[in-house]
Amino acid sequence: MTTPARRRLMRDFKRLQEDPPAGVSGAPSDNNIMLWNAVIFGPHDTPFEDGTFKLTIEFTEEYPNKPPTVRFISKMFHPNVYADGSICLDILQNRWSPTYDVSAILTSIQSLLHDPNPNSPANYEAAQLYRETRREYEKKVAAIVQESWNDDDDDDDDEGEEDEEESKAGS
């Protein structure tokens, strides 16, 4: 049986594939459409550049009337991300709107990497370094960017990429 939340998520997935936003990707897990895996690439011109940060997005049957729970799986060092990876972002809490979809959520988190809000810190150290010693902040971030490339160990990510461009003869 499909529920409205599940059907809405299928629409989100379709939209994400047809109109993919730059620098983010996401897909439902193999056997559960209510649990998504996503990747956010660190935005250019930020200390997060080149990082590949993995997240999980967990929906309830009340979606889209209630926001999903979004959490970084990759280690993160950011003023608005808690130690357990959960994110302090207004649109995922009190400013949620049912018009948001997975694409909007991921691009909002991507822009949070770009523009931290040190006034409502979830990671006090990160907020303090961001405000006071930006060089130290950037060093710490550089370390988690490095780590983000290594978290493939726990699951088998050896799926072959099959979208190599086929050369078309006689075009």
């Binding site: 049986m1 499909t2 529920t3 409205p4 059907r7 809405r8 629409r11 939209r15 889209p64 009337n65 049912p98 018009t99 979809d101």
Partner: peptide, 17 residues
């Protein structure tokens, strides 16, 4: 409909199911 993303002139996802 920006909530369920079905045309407003069609039935919403809830009513369809």
């Amino acid at each position: 409909c920006a909530i369920c993303r079905v045309q407003v002139m069609d039935a919403c996802l809830q009513c369809q199911s």
